[in-house]
C-alpha cells in the first residue's frame, strides 16, 4: 500500500523513528537549530517517554511499510520520569532478539540513547540507521500486501 517501487540504487528508505519528547526529540530539535545536516528519510513520531513504545508499534510500522524503525530515548538514568527507559531497555533488547529469531535482519530495527544536548549524536545515529537500511534494500517481508 505504498509507492515504494524504486530500485535499489537510488532507494530512499522510509524510517519511522519513535522519539521520547524530553531527550531524543529535543536532541533532534537541537540538530535542526544547530543546522546539522542529516538525511530526511526519518519520519519522527514523538511520544512522551520511550517506555510508551509498545513493541507492537514497531510491528505495525513494519506492516504499514516502514523500511526501518528506530526507537530512541534518554540515556539510562536520565529519564524525565526517572525509570521509564529502564523498562524500554529490557523490552526492546528482548524484542530485537525475537525478531532475529524469526529471520528479520537486526539492522532493520535500531535502538539508541540520544540526549537533549546531542545534536550531532542524533545526526550520527540517523546516518548509521539509513546506511544500514539502504544496504538491506526495501522491506518487503512484513509489509501487508494487498491479497491477490
Amino acid at each position: 500500500m505504498t509507492d515504494n517501487n524504486e530500485n535499489n540504487e537510488n532507494f530512499e528508505p522510509k524510517i519511522i523513528a519513535f522519539l521520547c519528547t524530553w531527550c531524543s526529540y529535543a536532541g533532534a530539535d537541537l540538530a535542526g537549530s544547530a543546522r546539522i545536516q542529516y538525511p530526511t528519510n526519518v519520519k519522527i513520531i514523538k511520544v512522551m517517554c520511550s517506555s510508551r513504545i509498545n513493541p507492537l508499534f514497531v510491528l505495525r510500522a513494519f506492516r504499514k511499510g516502514a523500511d526501518g524503525v528506530l526507537v530512541s530515548g534518554c540515556h539510562p538514568g536520565d529519564c524525565h520520569y526517572l525509570t521509564g527507559n529502564y523498562f524500554t531497555r529490557r523490552r526492546l533488547i528482548l524484542f530485537k532478539k525475537q525478531l532475529e529469531w524469526v529471520g528479520i535482519d537486526p539492522n532493520r530495527f535500531h535502538m539508541s540513547w540520544v540526549s537533549a544536548s546531542e545534536g550531532q549524536g542524533w545526526a550520527d545515529v540517523v546516518n548509521k540507521v539509513i546506511d544500514d537500511v539502504k544496504e538491506l534494500g526495501p522491506q518487503d517481508e512484513m509489509r501487508r500486501k494487498v491479497v491477490e
Partner: peptide, 25 residues
Amino acid sequence: QFSNKTPTMEDNFNFHMSRMYHMTG
C-alpha cells in the same frame, strides 16, 4: 488495531510476534 482479522501471512506473523512478545518473561 495491532493485527487484522485476515489470516494472511503478514497478519499471522504480526499475531504470532505479538503473542510471543506478550509472553516474554
